[in-house]
Design a protein around this nucleic acid. Sequence first.
DNA 1: GTGAAAGCGCTAACAT
DNA 2: ATGTTAGCGCTTTCAC
Lengths: 350, 350
Amino acid sequence: MKSEEIARLAGVSRSTVSRVINNYPNVPQATRDKVMKVIKKYNFEPNVSARVLAGKGTDTLGLFLFSIYDKKNPLRVYGNSYFGPFLDAVVDTGNYKGFYILIHTIYTPQECRYIYQTFSQRRIDGGIIIGTESNPEIETVISNTNYPLAIIDYDPDEIKKIMHKDGKIVVINSLDRKGISKCIDELVSLGHKEIGFIEGRKTTYSGYVRKDEFIKSMNRHGLELKNEYILKGDFVRDKTEKEVAKMINKGRLPTAIIASNDEMALAAMDTFRAHNISIPEDISIIGFDDSPVASLVEPSLTTVRIPFYTMAQKAVQALSEMIKGKAEGLLHYQVDVELIWRKSCTKNKI
Amino acid sequence: MKSEEIARLAGVSRSTVSRVINNYPNVPQATRDKVMKVIKKYNFEPNVSARVLAGKGTDTLGLFLFSIYDKKNPLRVYGNSYFGPFLDAVVDTGNYKGFYILIHTIYTPQECRYIYQTFSQRRIDGGIIIGTESNPEIETVISNTNYPLAIIDYDPDEIKKIMHKDGKIVVINSLDRKGISKCIDELVSLGHKEIGFIEGRKTTYSGYVRKDEFIKSMNRHGLELKNEYILKGDFVRDKTEKEVAKMINKGRLPTAIIASNDEMALAAMDTFRAHNISIPEDISIIGFDDSPVASLVEPSLTTVRIPFYTMAQKAVQALSEMIKGKAEGLLHYQVDVELIWRKSCTKNKI
DNA sequence: GTGAAAGCGCTAACAT
DNA sequence: ATGTTAGCGCTTTCAC
């Protein structure tokens, strides 16, 4: 079934069918009804390739997820506490706004060429990039493309420097500085002075910002930064378990520790428990993300909630406007975070 | 940049460029090199809409996920212990085989029309359907479409009855009967006689099969089926918590309980714990799926592992062959499951 | 308000 | 081995 047949059956020309499909104003209701009746009757759906070729959009957004694990890890993508809810929200808000979502996982910087490819083949009208570290490959994409792009968790100043002169980019970050400083204020008010930190990859923006704010907040409170309490967890479980075990074996522990994401917080919890260190009695733990499991573990995890759904909505909304030509240049949104107080934290008893 | 310009720059015709792009054999290496050089130089990527319109495939697979939650639940899709790993595997194996993946969430039977739409608009060459309950809407899709379709977890006999005469369908199930009967064999050998069951939605195939096999296996061992120990959890946490609490309040418990998925098993664990019932000392628990968290909870959850990756691979592989015309009709695969023994189960001490 | 015709970028059948 | 041409199904000028 094609529009030509619909036209024949409705006794009009293909142009009129097209006008009806695209809701053009200069079609009288009678004609519109006549055509729609035939369209409904045959469940006609226009061929999207023909429409695109004739100049319409694809109504498709590409979602590019940078895996922090390598390909062999079975948890490589959606085991990530961050991606699942975000993906979910993008598909949902995208579908709601009439977009199809094309999804691609990127495992190495070299695979950034898939982003270029997907745009060049005209498969998508806009793209969402999440989880990328800053590296030359992604910068090439950012500086060469003028297709609408939403980048989650990236340094906006960096983008401003390198972006294409006709670029249409929206950067969306969470207020991580506020999140971390709130954690520390709260811990300090509970009498904690020895506060540790498990940092994520500093090549990601959030990894950098969270660590940086940890240092700033500690200084603000006049608290000493002890290197032995600052661990590198790279945002992943394995590394965190090792680093935490190492710290335990050295014999001295902070009274509280903040992890740069929930996954590392949970890994730390398990490692402490395996060494008979009780949470929160012996050490308080705070995570970041408020991933779905945070409320389910025992004890439930205090963490900073990131509004993934809001971020996805903002991304889709901004892309939608850029695609329609209603917005351009560099947009920057910062979404608010919230400290969710649960049972993994308590007063310092010392 | 279009193929015509590549042709001009390489000093050949558009047909030759097309032949090179599509790896046709009747092009001498010299010509091929000459053309490829220009293509590389300009990073040329052919317009996919034009290719599709001219008769090529879209190289895109649609993944349709039926949510067991409603739209308002923040865990609605990828909080599902089943979907995350499966989605992950589909994207991975699909991308690996050169397919793009279009993803759509279906919340209500009525939204099944999106499947029809996506095919009709020629957005995809094949589709994967997962998590669907049997209902008239999905049956309409199955009986009307002759596009390649992979259906995960569905009764193959039902499909055979209703499918389109030119249908190309692959049904992929896990050997759930083996999984459940192994659980019971194992529990019995540990001295358990009072075994409970938390069933999922029986409108899904696996929901039905797991419950049915529970009954059969109990009978095989000559064990009594007690209605008070058979709970309805609908595959979700909330309902399970309520049902388990109800059972606890009645005062009598089985010595072991099998849940039809991990999510319900974990919900049960939490509920027992909240009532000071220890696991596995007071009651042994077994789940189904081996979702990522199963090994992380305390105590770690004994569960039946479903090889999601293998299922995704089989789905993509079969679709790929059907799309190429190398396979047709109804295929049926059953993948093996494995009982993963962890700490949530122990001997019956009574 | 509606139709005729050109054209989007590619592939494939046909011709050479 | 390569070029010429028609055509895929739609949108969009341009006439009327």
